[in-house]
Design a binder for these strands. Structure first.
Lengths: 203, 203, 203, 203
DNA sequence: AAATAACCGAGACGGTACGTCGCGTCTTTCC
DNA sequence: GGAAAGACGCGACGTACCGTCTCGGTTATTT
């Protein structure tokens, strides 16, 4: 839409009043590339810098660690990809949202990055805290939306425990992806929705 | 006949007919120590070797990586700690087993090691495969036992989908531990059992 | 203008436009120290680096091996120590020069380093070539000087074979030092001069 | 001439009455092979043992170091190869002997081994002492023989300084080989003999 | 227009850990 | 008791990255 590529030979070399957006994007893109190409074990600051055509110091100036870069690279992908739809009908909203979550976790590049970060967070409490503050709590709020709207519509009983309901829907998907490694086909998410609605039927 | 301890000053130094059990145990214990003391980031082969009083080469001779050591150190802890009880009553069996799983994941040293391995497995397919083959499939079989016995007793309907039932019970616990980081109190596992039994009541 | 010493706390850490002279000198001095203190067998890169307060990588960046370091450390010591004097009298020039050569080979630190390098050169053709190109050919030229000046003065016949003469004077000194290990007292070098002058007398 | 090869499958594996000559020869031959094939830097005990089909311990039982093996492998080659002939004529005796010495140092395998040992001796006083005791002093005695016989025959004056004479003849050859690396053609040794005889002519 | 000061690239620096090689010692089993 | 086999503790190797530090050049705002 707008001029993105840089005219040959006209690269930014810094100015005193702010950082180079060029460098920032190059680093984030390079981190993504390197993660895909070399895996997490091969994801080094030196490699990211070389790939981005950026000095190491530039990276250290703006990011505190490589997971910090990944967190930045992950960006708002969750927020963008995983906003549940609003069709005014719970079954359809849940169906589509659960399928989107499953696809994100198993297929998307951003999902791979998310799984890596979640993995590191198992032994990095700081990362865990940031991950939850910056991404998970927001996503949890989005996950509640279809249910809250259903309650408002009277489709679900007013005393529904929305937290537990979200857990019951989201946990099996994450369990398969993170623990058992089983695939998460549409049948699986459909079945989750069926069981959930059956349990909350006679409202 | 059962000489187990080594006479002072009589250490094993290896021979062609087998490795040193002394060295093996020292390494596994040292890996545990170092993991607890320095965290996963401070878990280096050099530190394990130094702590174990063992040569680096001895480690490289028998283990392919530090996660391989952890996998070995994890040993049969899952199998030992997480065998579900058999009281002849589904509610009680499930209650105790789910509480044991929650305690293992959140409290036990072995649980910490397990979470680390699961974290690494997110970007290490080989590790993921070994983890599943050596630990998770066996645990899944153990998790099924209370339900299968209940079906045999007629406590659960014969057409119960045991796989889905196990997932419904286990997934929320793992989801809290691995993803949201929320605590997993007894009330939570009790509630899971209640809901499950309510769903499968009038069989 | 001649600020040479480095202000306290202002160490060079390298930049793209050149290497650290500080590090270079520290390494060469450390190599010398370690060679004297631990012998050639105890001359390890790790020890040199530790002694110099330098990272191993810095050594590997600039030198290809430890003999390369020694070659560098040997520096211009031969050229500085073994320039023959010019008294305008062959006997005195030769006397002093031969005594200086003998002292260099048997007493001087640089001489010990030279003997070590010559020893390694016996099974290291590359080292042999460098040693000859960088040191021996120049020294050979200096060794010729007294004789060439004597020829110019008419003190020696114009058809004197200077090459053979140099060999006849130098070879016995080196032979004793390198092969038989006998001492090389002043009497010995004086005797060499006497015999040489007797042979070339009736000019 | 005699049975050298070992019947298949019937190797010596030790006995309580003495060492295995088989193993000894295998080690010395392997040391020679490895030195030729991998150079002195690649001459390791492990490689010698593997090449010889011998256990490391067997080597350590009988030799104290790898130079000890080389010293053993060098054997009596000097004594055998460098016995000066006795034609009853000094010129011829010297001519042939000097040519033999030059050939030994520059061409023979044993000569290469000798040069290596001499090189190591520059920084290994123990080796230097053994080398002189076991080889060089004997060779020096052999080198004197032609001259002593010439004195006895009256071909040389009775007050000839035989030591210095030997040095004058031997030193230039060794100097070229060990220091300058120049070739040592027959012309060179012939010229040495010529000069020597000219100096000691009018006896 | 010139001066300036933060940012940029490049890369040398002191370090830590890597995974490998060879050392010399030890133990086991066989002959 | 010598020999083959090979595991052991140890130390050095040469390499990869770490995070820090100049360095010279770039460039948007001041003066």
């Amino acid at each position: 839409m707008s001029e993105v590529t840089v005219p040959a030979g006209r690269r930014h070399h810094g100015n005193r009043y702010g950082r180079s957006e060029q460098a920032r994007h190059a680093v984030l893109a390079a981190a993504d590339d390197v993660l895909v190409e070399f895996g997490f074990g091969g994801l080094t600051i030196e490699r990211i810098a070389a790939r981005a055509g950026v000095a190491k110091q530039t990276i250290y100036r703006w990011w505190s660690s490589k997971v910090d870069i990944l967190l930045d690279a992950l960006g708002d992908d969750l927020a963008e990809d995983l906003v549940p739809p609003d069709h005014g009908e719970l079954r359809r909203d849940l169906s589509e949202h659960l399928a989107a979550v499953a696809a994100f976790l198993t297929v998307a590049d951003a999902g791979a990055m998310f799984r890596v970060l979640l993995g590191q967070a198992q032994h990095d409490p700081d990362l865990a805290a940031r991950l939850r503050a910056e991404h998970l709590s927001g996503q949890r709020a989005r996950d509640r939306l279809p249910l809250e709207r259903a309650v408002a519509r009277g489709e679900l009983s007013a005393d529904t425990d929305v937290e537990r309901a979200v857990e019951a829907l989201m946990a099996p998907i994450h369990y398969r992806v993170l623990v058992t490694g089983e695939p998460v086909p549409v049948e699986f998410t459909e079945d989750l929705v069926d069981r959930f609605l059956a349990d909350h039927a006679g409202a």
